[in-house]
Design a binder for these strands. Structure first.
Lengths: 198, 198
DNA sequence: CCTACTATTGGCAGCCTGCCAATAAAAGGC
DNA sequence: GCCTTTTATTGGCAGGCTGCCAATAGTAGG
């Protein structure tokens, strides 16, 4: 908007970032089909052809946005907690809840349902991010990250956790304390009663 | 394909059904953006313009498909189970797991993630279906369906349940017994330790 | 049998996407 | 400091998809 120059030449990385930011803003607000590349280009203050030059096609740009957003919570490294099982579970829950802050609001819309029909690549990206988070939780609570069934169980826990976060953070149907209570008790039950029984 | 007649005139309900079936098949396999109305029309053996005549536009047709698929699992009414808490929890879990059968495979792709960005109407449809299921589970285990926080908690449990079902039914990373164990123990913990603490 | 009704079709206009050649802003040699 | 090379950036073209509408043809009722 404030850019007056006809052509502004930027370093590829910078421009790439700029386009990604614009795309993220729009994709976070509306679904894939509703957002046109024309609008993304306009939002980024750039010719539409440049999107194709940097990302090939709309879909690839979209996948890049999804990849970033899905990995947000796992960006920061957390030290493995010590102490009693309850302490470690609390730490894991705290990490999960704390990784979602207002400035990372985009994550809240990640994995928003499309309805029916899945996109294999999108699915793969999300699965990978969720599995990464699940592995981390599993380590925190002292489980075996190499056990596929245990990982699957904790991945399912991740679904509950994201659901609870949405209830708290978007719907306001749960307080933060209630969400914490839910996650703690469920994770405790999983560690004590489910994992040993696999 | 086997239809030789140039124009085959059907009762509106019948044709509507035919189009919906074709759309469901395609939307279950690919995402919204990947499926063109041209292809749906071809799959249904019908002119493309007829889709607009029956459903207005692509989006409305899609919403109709989502609505149907999302309501499938809650179709059958189940009697409220009696007996001990454990029995009732087991019954609820059994109902949840049993509602997913091969012939209802479409449901498996419901709520498949799009990635980022949500469609408010789709979201509303799915939320409604999930809330319905949550209310039913809450009744089964003797909770208060009128308590918003309790409903939110059980909705979150629904996320875990659908995740576990996917792990079992699609990924084969969990056996049915393991999924059952997970759902039972988590639901038990929720009833015993979370709901009273709200 | 003929007419009124409406289910069904085909085509038009506009938008969106991917592609590519043309252009201009830097970078580098001298 | 100028000129050449490099490449970031643009605009426009072709094809496909969507929504709309007038024309067409089955079908039911008089």
């Amino acid at each position: 908007m404030t850019e007056t120059a006809r052509r502004q030449r930027l370093a590829p990385d910078e421009r790439r970032e700029q386009i990604l930011a614009a795309a993220e803003r729009l994709f976070a607000a509306q679904s894939y089909a509703e957002v046109s590349t024309t609008r993304i280009a306009h939002e980024a203050g750039v010719a539409r052809g440049l999107l194709n030059h940097y990302f090939g096609d709309k879909r690839t740009l979209y996948l890049e946005v999804v990849r970033r957003a899905s990995l947000l919570p796992t960006l920061e490294d957390v030290p493995l907690p010590s102490g009693s099982l309850t302490d470690r579970v609390d730490a894991a829950v705290h990490w999960f809840l704390g990784s979602i802050t207002p400035e990372r609001a985009t994550y809240l819309t990640v994995r928003a349902a499309e309805g029916v029909g899945e996109d294999a690549e999108v699915r793969a990206i999300l699965d990978q991010a969720h599995d990464l988070a699940a592995g981390r939780v599993l380590e925190m609570v002292g489980g075996d990250p190499g056990d596929p069934a245990a990982r699957a169980v904790v991945r399912s826990f991740g679904e509950l956790a994201r659901g609870a976060i949405r209830e708290w953070s978007r719907e306001a149907t749960l307080s933060r304390e209630q969400a914490h209570l839910l996650l703690r008790e469920v994770l405790l039950a999983i560690v004590r009663r489910v994992l040993p029984g696999l």
